[in-house]
Amino acid sequence: MSDPVIEVDDLRMRYGAKDVLTGVDFHVGRGEVVALLGPNGAGKTTTIEILEGFRSRSDGRVRVLGEDPATAPQSWRAGIGIVLQSWRDHGRWSVRALLEHLGEFYAPYSTPERRRPRDTDELLATVGLDGLADRRIAKLSGGERRRLDVAIGIVGRPEVLFLDEPTAGFDPEARRDFHDIVHGLVDLDDTSILLTTHDLAEAEKLADRILILSRGRIVADGSPAQLAREAAGSSEVRWTRGGESFVHADHDATAFVRGLFAQYGEEITDLEVTRSSLEETYMALVHRHEAAEDAVGDLEPTEGAAR
């Protein structure tokens, strides 16, 4: 991967006696959309807050746009976009007033290649809030507020955008609208996006690459298709021959089907090949990792007792 915008090497985080991150490694390239996927409590939010510079880490090396978020100068913030979930802030402000106010912070960092801030009207059109520019923020619906959150996150035309559980609490329609907005962003300005989610379908829909975080460690890293191949890896082949149904699981379904035809030719009917779904992959990966860790955990006291 050339020109990584996010580099995380052996990131560790410990709260008191509790290890939340136990050596996280990953890189994100320019223009890439990466989903950090994992069950609740896996350390997704901790990771993203460290990258945002909102939380200090215990150990490891982290670089975002070439700077350590813990010590980066304020100018570094001009290249970072963060989508924060509005709750009740700036309720009295109009949509336009707030976007223009927050956009002003980025004006000193404008370059011919990256004009900052984004034009308010274009921005409103991008997130589908056109026509609501003069609406008071307190009067927006929940979905409209989320669009505003995204607009605020990208008002400074960031090189890297962070989204932490962006669709938590969305209804299916709001979720689909949000996915459309994110797809639109990627095409604009080569923005790299790191998002966290515990929703697998969302990760699959949005990301070029999925990182699965489980118990403070990355247990899988690849495109949705790669991950599906990597895990249990098997596809299911179903067919009928002579009125009888057959099922066979195989790592290389293509070779198996070729052999099947070579042997029986036209006797084969109702052929069906199903790749194991990403969901099955995900569950398999997380469980395999947790089982391995628990096994190690079980061994430790025994060793201690033997000494």
């Binding site: 913030r77 979930q85 802030d89 700036h90 000193p108 960092y109």
Partner: peptide, 14 residues
Amino acid sequence: EDGTLLRAKAAPFG
């Protein structure tokens, strides 16, 4: 509590 301060913190010299 409502996140106004966090929004400020996300901007350069916010």
